[in-house]
Write a protein that binds this DNA or RNA. Structure first.
Lengths: 125, 125
DNA sequence: CTACTAACTTTCAATACGAAAGTTAGTGAG
DNA sequence: CTCACTAACTTTCGTATTGAAAGTTAGTAG
């Protein structure tokens, strides 16, 4: 990933400035872990976008992809620390929308704090 | 503007989820007011995008366009309250980049607090 | 007139998006 | 041991957005 300038804001937007990446992060933050669950949010991410974004998120080190069941093959996507640290950004966005846009959902209290990452068997320390 | 869902995060991204809109907001927050100055940032917004975004920002009520000089015609773009209230979001983004990306500029202290909007003569209360 | 500047606007090739269909690996029913 | 079904992708392809460059409009200055 190359950046347009050393500005931290523009660099943030180089990574996250699109309509879907942070939606996927949000869903991981509310506890979703599987591809299917991520695909079925209130906004219905296109499949082609979801697969692409999950790949990017893994490359950038903000999610771990864990094969937690072999037969049938099943995968879990879990936020890393780096991914979890995006929460304040999402909360700031949420606040802005709630005070500036009419009738948005209000942020549930449990979303406001980092939750322990779901644990999956393979190769965890 | 229509929203994908009532989620405040996805609604925020419906408005701001692109690579340039918040760059323009950032530049207005550092005190730039004129088209030319906005066009000459460290990232060089394409003209076609800048004009388009300024139009949207005015429509959405986050900037005021003020003709502050008649001959020659000169315009100033100034953030409204609604626009100014995006500052916490930009600061959260900035924080994330500074702790997670190498060698980004650090946020100047004066950027961290809302500054009085520049005053221009025409039709202000 | 001619040159020059601010503030746009238009053009157009390239990239990104997104709906839909197809693929792969596996389970379970008959 | 074929048929139907599900999770997790991948591919295709028409549409929308992007961005580099050139053009436009209104005005000043020589």
């Amino acid at each position: 990933m190359d950046h347009r300038s050393p500005c931290p804001i523009s660099s943030f937007l180089d990574l996250w400035g699109d309509k879907w990446s942070l939606i996927v992060i949000r869903d991981l933050m509310v506890g979703k872990t599987r591809y299917k669950d991520l695909a079925d949010g209130p906004e219905t991410v296109p499949d082609s976008i979801l697969a692409n974004r999950l790949k990017k998120l893994a490359e950038w080190g903000v999610v771990d992809k864990v094969r937690y069941h072999d037969r049938p093959p099943r995968y879990a996507y879990v936020l890393t620390e780096k991914g979890e640290s995006l929460r304040p950004v999402l909360l700031a966005m949420s606040d802005w929308s709630q005070t500036n846009l009419p009738s948005r959902w209000s942020t549930p209290d449990w979303f406001k704090e980092a939750r322990p990452a779901p644990r999956f068997a393979p190769e965890e320390e």
